[in-house]
Design a protein around this nucleic acid. Structure first.
Length: 903
DNA sequence: CATTAGCATGGTC
DNA sequence: GGACCATGCTAAT
């Protein structure tokens, strides 16, 4: 340990360190070299090698600028990057080159969201080093992907402001040459036994360098996928797949040759990075960083809070998503070392044809339309996807017309699948044992693909999967994660448990009769146990605690403070997070001895063996003899939703997610192994068949989508959930807007009237959007519209100025806002909107003399919707760019005119 | 002839 | 019966 000596760590220097030694480079041991002031300054100025290693070997010249760079010591390890073609490049040049590309705003255009392989400009030098810089270059170059993919602007997802990061550019000074892996593939957190794999240690040292600070703290954008599965060094394989991934290869100016072994030995980001900013489980504000034993996730303190976007992004996401909070929570849990979040999108069991040589992966239509860029041409577009190893693939995302509908496929997946070692030889097992998952890395919008091992080993041992005692955690399959060679076989994506079950059932069925396969292949999650598993994922995150010795050192990196622990975090005492009656976050913990539940602060970190005596917060209840504060029924309420046994009742669905944050389930940790990709958490209620994360009632873009295909799928009188939802939302929106507008009008009118000294008209007429013109509203802003087909004079509808000035997102899934374009089933949605609009107008008419309420949802919807068009006044603006007439442009509804009456 | 691309068919929900 | 999707089939390369 550098600190052990009082002498400057620089062996060329014999000076004593000052009281506060200057920090130098990161040592292999995870500590920083402590230097004397002079050396520290020299180091910081980047002159260390120039000063002390002048005569040392290892000097090379930058291929770009010719500058001499010392490549032979730990100090300068980050000062250069290896070029595929040989030679090295100083980081200045490397960065310059990268940034030039990265900084290209065009990357953010159109497909930037997804294809932006957007390495952040803030890539730390170390990344270049550790991970073959060339790889990064490749990534960057893949920006061309935009063009590849770009068959036109496809606002599927807005490009994140990756390049607007306020995060300061890292200095080029060498730093943290080793360790610190924040990436912490959650999936890999799991079992410690894996951690013990000897080889891992080395790997960790060599591969996991400072992702924590660099990747995690700064860029973050690229981290998750890696941590999800491996690392950025995995790209090499792409070489062998060049033919299959033309773009990828073409865009790869440089290949990493020096690190290719990396890919063969996948990362084991054992470190845990748990930062759950928003989540209530404050107990773990940990993020892993961690140095040392490969196995340990160091805890990073305040990780999120310090992140530029961390919590915010999450919060925003939650808000914007408008999804069940559980989802958000799940996501928040998956915030390894950065503010990036992986949003599980969907998964698909691999079918024989998917895994076959044809290389076509059939995508569930709804998912494809919901989460992939809209495509209007059958040819589709190239889709860049990063696999769990960090390797990038480009698939052709396209569709085939099929029965007036579309059949979406991803072409060119074979190499990927093969690469994942899911390869044939046993296609059957591939089909049966794996599923592919798709997630989106936020905010980058990058598509991340993962393979999940639905079942481990051969079908014969599937039984093990059934051994999901309580938590339903597959008994096996995780150990494999520890084995690099098999790593790729195991997916780390979230829904493992689910898949395991699904796979299991599919396996058994399929083995008997392949024709039955499709049934099980469907993305259905109907086993309650699965739900439990997913819940446990969250739980697991709440179980990490600082290691017993709690020997920590605080390291400030890039302005962020990290707590580093020598030992791996331990699994803490399972607790139940809740909110007490005064709204404070607390957690309930059970005494090891008396089993009574005690209330402790939410941020209390409790040892796994916690007893009442440890109740420092409530002296009165610091002894087992003290009565339990929590009543049994209350306890049940708390536990039930999360308790595997009781969760079967799906009580969780009724629970306020905020109240119960975590629960028991150490077993879950094992599950973490497979929850790698950051995917994982799911809602507490049962998933729908449409989306693993979605529950009945979910109104996300996927779930709400009307059956796709051509032609109206929903009649105007349809009262299905989708229609009702759309209508309701639309209605609500209209009401709101109208109200707003009315208020404005009222204000305007008042002013005007005051000016004219005219009697103030009935306020209600102005304030109430529902007050139709009958009331004699003379608002100057009032516009009129003929409600076609109206058969009564009540058809006068005052809507004042356009309630729809802007676009209306009926999906209330902002993340899809930009994607609501052509490819989707917007046609149907438009129709629904029309219906809703009509409904609304009708209601307005009908209730013209009354005050409308917001509870109109259904009644209004039920009643006589005619086929009348709302072409008057309201423009349903669908830019019909899709060749498919049913795929209208967007869902945005623009009512350019106000609705008014014509009598 | 092998492979690929695209469409069609049929099973399942 | 419609929608979805696995997969078969065939034309094209």
């Amino acid at each position: 340990m550098s600190s052990s000596s009082k002498i400057c760590f620089n062996k060329e220097c014999k000076e004593l360190k000052s009281e506060r030694p200057r920090k130098g480079w990161l040592l292999r041991g995870g500590e920083f070299a402590e230097l004397c002031d002079r050396c520290g300054s020299i180091y910081e100025e980047g002159r260390f090698c120039d000063t002390f290693h002048v005569n040392a070997s290892g000097w090379r010249c930058c291929e770009s600028c010719g500058k001499r760079v010392h490549c032979g010591c730990i100090t300068s390890v980050h000062a250069f990057t290896l070029l595929d073609a040989g030679g090295i490049e100083c980081m200045t040049c490397a960065r310059k080159n990268v940034l030039v590309e990265v900084g290209n705003p065009k990357m953010l255009n159109d497909f930037g969201y997804l294809y932006n392989e957007a390495p952040t400009p803030s890539w730390p030098p170390s990344l270049f080093y550790q991970t073959p810089f060339p790889e990064r270059i490749k990534d960057l170059s893949v920006k061309n992907w935009t063009q590849l993919a770009g068959s036109g602007p496809v606002p599927w997802r807005q490009a994140p402001s990756l390049f607007n990061s306020s995060i300061p550019q890292p200095e080029l000074r060498p730093r943290l040459p080793y360790e610190v892996d924040l990436s912490a593939g959650i999936d890999r957190i799991n079992a410690s036994e894996r951690l013990s794999v000897p080889s891992l240690e080395k790997r960790k040292l060599e591969d996991f360098s400072e992702r924590l600070m660099n990747g995690g703290l700064k860029s973050g954008s690229r981290d998750i996928p890696e941590n999800a599965n491996a690392g950025w060094n995995q790209f090499r394989a792409s070489r062998s797949n060049c033919d299959m991934q033309p773009s990828s290869c073409l865009n790869k100016p440089q290949q990493s040759s020096t690190l290719k072994d990396d890919s063969s030995t996948p990362h084991f980001g054992l470190a845990v990075s748990y930062a759950s900013p928003s989540e209530t489980n404050s107990q773990i504000g940990v993020s892993g960083s961690h140095l040392r034993p490969v196995v340990q996730p160091p805890l990073v303190k305040q990780f999120h809070g310090n992140l530029p976007n961390g919590a915010d992004s999450l919060g925003e996401t939650q808000v914007r998503n408008g999804r069940p909070r559980v989802d958000a929570r799940g996501r928040s849990q998956l915030l390894p070392r950065s503010n990036s979040v992986i949003t599980p999108l969907f998964e698909k069991m691999l079918s024989a044809s998917d895994a076959g040589r044809i290389g076509r992966l059939v995508l569930p239509k709804k998912c494809a339309e919901a989460y992939f860029p809209p495509i209007s041409q059958p040819e589709g577009l190239p889709l860049k996807v990063q696999d769990s190893k960090g390797k990038e693939w480009i698939f052709q995302f396209r569709f085939w017309p099929n029965n007036n509908s579309r059949m979406y496929v991803l072409e060119g997946v074979t190499p990927c699948i093969q690469n994942m070692q899911l390869q044939a030889g046993d296609i059957d097992s591939v089909v049966l044992l794996f599923s592919v998952t798709f997630s989106r890395l936020e905010p980058e919008g990058k598509l991340v693909m993962g393979f999940r091992k639905a079942s481990s080993a051969s079908a014969s041992d599937q039984d093990n999967e059934a051994n999901k005692a309580g938590t339903g955690i597959p008994a096996n399959g995780h150990a494999e994660l520890a084995d690099p060679s098999s790593w790729s076989k195991v997916d780390k994506s979230g829904y493992i448990a689910t898949e395991a079950l699904g796979a299991k059932s599919s396996i058994s069925r399929k083995r008997k009769n392949t024709t039955l396969g499709s049934k099980s292949k469907r993305l259905k999650i109907e086993n309650e146990d699965v739900i439990e598993l997913k819940l446990t994922w969250e739980e697991a995150q709440g179980l990490l605690r600082p290691p017993p010795n709690n020997v920590r050192s605080v390291v400030v990196i890039e302005g962020y403070e990290f707590e580093e622990y020598e030992d791996a975090p331990i699994l803490g005492k399972p607790t139940i997070f809740a909110t007490d009656n005064v709204g404070e976050k607390i957690q309930w913990v059970q005494c090891e001895d008396c089993s009574k539940w005690r209330k402790v602060p939410a941020n209390a970190r409790l040892p796994s063996k916690w007893t009442c005596s440890g109740n420092l917060w409530d002296p009165e209840r610091s002894v087992c003899s003290a009565a339990q504060e929590l009543r049994e029924e209350q306890l049940e309420d708390l536990i039930a939703p999360n308790n595997p046994a009781s969760s079967k009742k799906l009580k969780a669905a009724k629970q306020e997610p905020d109240c119960v944050e975590a629960l028991e389930g150490l077993d879950t940790l094992a599950n973490l192994a497979i929850l790698g990709e950051g995917e994982g958490l799911t809602a507490s209620s049962q998933a729908t068949t449409k989306h693993p994360r979605h529950r009945p009632g979910c109104s996300c873009i996927v779930c709400i989508q009307p059956p796709s295909g051509k032609g109206p799928k929903h009649k105007q009188t349809c009262t299905c959930n989708v229609c009702l939802t759309v209508k309701r939302r639309f209605h609500t929106l209209m009401l709101r807007r109208e109200k707003k507008q009315s208020e404005k009008d009222a204000e305007t009118s008042r002013k005007k009237q005051q000016q004219q000294k005219l009697p103030v008209p009935e306020k209600s007429a102005d304030d109430d959007p529902l007050s139709c013109s009958k009331t004699g509203n003379n608002s100057p802003n009032e516009k009129k519209v003929v409600s076609e087909g109206s058969d009564d004079d009540s058809s006068r509808i005052k809507s004042s100025t356009s309630p729809f000035k802007g676009q209306i997102d009926l999906n209330i899934q902002p993340e899809r806002e930009e994607e609501l374009s052509p490819g989707s089933d917007s046609g149907s949605m438009i129709r629904l909107l029309q219906d809703a609009t009509e409904k609304y107008l009708r209601q307005q008419r009908l209730s013209s003399s009354g005050v409308n309420t917001s509870s109109v949802d259904n009644e209004g919807l039920q009643g006589g919707v005619t086929g009348e068009k709302i072409s008057n006044g309201i423009t349903l603006d669908g830019s019909h760019q899709d060749t498919d007439e049913d795929h209208h442009g967007s869902l945005s509804v623009k009512a350019s005119a106000s609705i008014s009456a014509t009598g």
